[in-house]
Lab assay of single mutants.
Amino acid sequence: PQEEYKKRAKKALKKGDEDTAREALKRAGLSPDQAEEFIRRFL
């Protein structure tokens, strides 16, 4: 589910792994723009 992928993305970002985070967010159904926004907000 979407929440699970978002959790995964946050874990990846904590490790500084933005590529894995983007992949997880893409799987969560976010557009690339939404994924970038999510990452920017998190960092």
Rank of each mutant, 00 (worst) to 15 (best):
E4P: 04
I39K: 01
L25H: 00
L30C: 07
K15L: 14
R27L: 15
Q34L: 07
P32S: 11
L25Y: 01
K7V: 07
K14P: 01
E18N: 08
E37P: 00
A9T: 01
L30F: 12
K15W: 08
D19Q: 13
K11V: 14
G29L: 04
E23L: 06
A35N: 02
L43Q: 11
S31F: 04
F38R: 00
S31T: 14
R40D: 10
R41H: 12
E3S: 08
K14Y: 11
D17K: 05
K26E: 10
P1Q: 14
S31W: 03
E23Y: 03
L43A: 09
A35D: 01
K26S: 12
K7I: 08
K7H: 08
L43M: 10
S31E: 06
A21C: 04
A12T: 01
K7R: 12
F38P: 00
R8G: 06
S31Q: 06
K6T: 10
K26M: 12
R41S: 13
A24K: 04
Y5Q: 11
E3M: 07
Q34N: 05
I39H: 00
D17L: 06
E36H: 04
Q2C: 14
L43G: 08
R40Q: 12
T20H: 06
R40L: 09
F38T: 02
R40E: 11
F42R: 03
E4A: 07
R8E: 15
E18C: 13
L13G: 01
K6F: 15
G29D: 03
R27N: 13
Q2L: 13
L13I: 05
E18Q: 12
E23T: 07
E37R: 06
A9D: 01
R40S: 09
E37G: 05
K6M: 15
A24Y: 15
K14D: 11
Q2D: 13
A24V: 13
P1T: 14
Y5V: 05
E23D: 11
R40I: 09
E36L: 06
R27E: 13
E37F: 04
A9I: 04
L13E: 00
E18Y: 15
R41M: 11
I39F: 03
E4G: 06
I39D: 00
F42Y: 12
L30N: 01
K6R: 09
I39N: 01
L13A: 03
P32T: 10
K10V: 15
L13Y: 02
E3I: 08
F42D: 03
P32M: 09
Q2S: 12
D19R: 12
L30H: 03
L30M: 12
Y5T: 04
F38K: 00
F38V: 04
A35F: 03
K10M: 14
D33G: 09
L30G: 00
A35I: 15
A21L: 02
A12R: 02
Q2H: 11
L25C: 00
L25W: 00
Q2Y: 12
Q2N: 12
A21P: 00
A24T: 08
A12P: 01
K15E: 15
A21Q: 00
P1C: 14
A28S: 06
D33N: 08
E36C: 05
K10A: 12
R41A: 12
A24P: 00
A12W: 04
A9P: 01
K15R: 13
S31M: 06
A21W: 02
K15N: 14
R41F: 08
R8P: 02
G16R: 05
E23R: 08
D33F: 07
G29V: 00
F42A: 09
E18S: 10
R22W: 07
F38D: 01
Q2E: 14
P1V: 14
A35M: 12
A12D: 03
F42S: 05
E18W: 15
Y5L: 14
S31D: 10
E3Q: 08
S31G: 06
G29I: 00
R27G: 09
K10E: 15
T20R: 08
R40Y: 10
E36W: 04
E36S: 06
P1F: 14
Y5S: 07
E37K: 06
A28I: 05
T20D: 07
E4H: 08
P32W: 11
K6V: 15
E37A: 10
F42L: 07
A9V: 04
L13Q: 01
R22G: 02
K26F: 10
L25E: 00
D19T: 13
E37N: 06
R41E: 14
G29M: 03
A12I: 03
P1G: 13
K11M: 09
L30Y: 10
D33L: 10
A12S: 06
Q34R: 05
E3N: 09
K15H: 13
G29F: 03
E37L: 05
E18F: 15
F38W: 10
E23I: 08
R22Q: 04
A35G: 03
L25R: 00
R8T: 12
E4W: 10
A21V: 03
K6A: 07
K11D: 15
I39Y: 01
D19P: 10
K10T: 13
D17F: 05
A24W: 15
P1W: 15
K6W: 13
K15M: 14
Y5N: 08
Q34Y: 05
K7T: 10
L25F: 02
A28K: 01
K10L: 14
L25V: 01
K7N: 13
A9S: 02
E4N: 09
E3D: 13
A24E: 15
R22T: 04
E3V: 07
L30T: 01
T20W: 06
K11L: 09
G29R: 02
P32E: 13
I39V: 06
E18M: 15
Q34K: 07
Y5H: 12
Q34D: 11
F42K: 03
D19H: 12
D33I: 09
P32C: 09
F42C: 11
P1D: 15
K6H: 08
E3G: 07
E4Q: 08
D17W: 04
I39R: 01
F42V: 09
D17M: 06
K11I: 15
E18R: 12
A9Q: 01
A35P: 00
Y5W: 15
Y5C: 10
L25A: 02
S31C: 10
